[in-house]
Design a protein around this nucleic acid. Structure first.
Length: 268
DNA sequence: AGAAGGACCTGCACGC
DNA sequence: TGCGTGCAGGTCCTTC
């Protein structure tokens, strides 16, 4: 479900509701969604205060007053909602963090591609993630693209190359930059890289500002959907006319992911 | 070592 | 109505 803008909006909506609160208890559902498997959440979380919540790529990182950290990944269908303790929990609620007021933070995830990941005091827990697009210069971005023989669409989905992009925003960014999704990453010129990075950053910022894209499941911590899907130019628009040239948007499968582009605006 | 392909899950929209 | 198929904002593991 969620890419960088959606996760950013979850963090922003969650922060005022949860930071500074103490966890009275934690309840788990029938499925173990915690990593490492069998991890005892109560032992490490009960009576701890949440000092900070921040986003790293698509991860929602919680910092406790003990200095321990954990993160929640929403996978495809995950939601973090803050609800009054006496409202019935939705199906597929796997974790309930009972807060010291009358509410609880609930992790809901039907497909269970997401989960809870204990980081503890580890400092190298983000080793597997590349830099955020916001932190890259055009030269640095270009240099990273030169390291792979894969097509650009696949390369941009690799979280170790650039962190935070997913299927929607890759398609939208490649369209905005006029680059064909099957272009080999290492053949992208510095000038094209610069344009692509600029597209990525401006699209992510617009999407964050619009509350993210809500297609099926996405809601922020208050239960509000995003609106950026109304501004999609190619994603989920196959067959519809391109807003720039009028040719029908195409859909192909690349890296097992559906890929949308305009054959008029994005030449190989 | 890097890259491709399948696997992991549930729900929903569609066609017959 | 009911069933089968295909599809979905992601990532991990295995294989080549």
């Amino acid at each position: 479900m969620p890419e960088l803008p959606e996760v950013e909006n979850v963090v922003r909506s969650l922060t005022p509701l949860v930071v500074g609160r103490t966890l009275s208890s934690v309840r788990t559902g029938t499925h173990d969604v915690a990593e490492p498997r069998g991890f005892d959440l109560s032992t490490h979380l009960q009576y701890r205060q949440i000092n900070r919540i921040h986003r790293r790529a698509k991860r929602i990182v919680f910092t406790l007053d003990s200095g321990d950290r954990f993160y929640i990944h929403l996978g495809m269908t995950g939601q973090l909602l803050v609800e009054p303790y006496n409202t019935p929990a939705k199906p597929h609620t796997h974790l309930r963090f009972i807060l010291d007021d009358t509410r609880e933070l609930r992790f809901i995830d039907p497909r269970r591609f997401g989960g809870f990941f204990w980081m503890g005091q580890s400092l190298d827990a983000e080793r597997d993630l590349g830099p955020e697009p916001f932190d890259l210069s055009p030269e640095q971005f270009h240099a990273r693209l030169l390291t792979t023989r894969r097509v650009i669409k696949t390369a941009l989905l690799d979280q170790s190359l650039v962190a935070g992009l997913g299927n929607i925003y890759v398609d939208e960014s490649l369209f905005a930059a006029g680059i064909h999704p099957k272009k080999i990453a290492r053949r992208v010129t510095l000038q094209q890289s610069a344009r692509l990075l600029e597209s990525v950053v401006s699209i992510l910022n617009s999407a964050i500002h619009s509350g993210g894209s809500s297609l099926r499941d996405y809601l922020d911590a208050n239960g509000n959907p995003g609106l950026f899907q109304l501004q999609h130019r190619v994603y989920d628009r196959d067959g519809e006319p391109c807003t720039t040239c009028g040719l029908p948007i195409k859909r192909v499968v690349l890296h097992q992911r559906s890929t949308h582009f305009c054959s008029g605006c994005q030449k190989r």
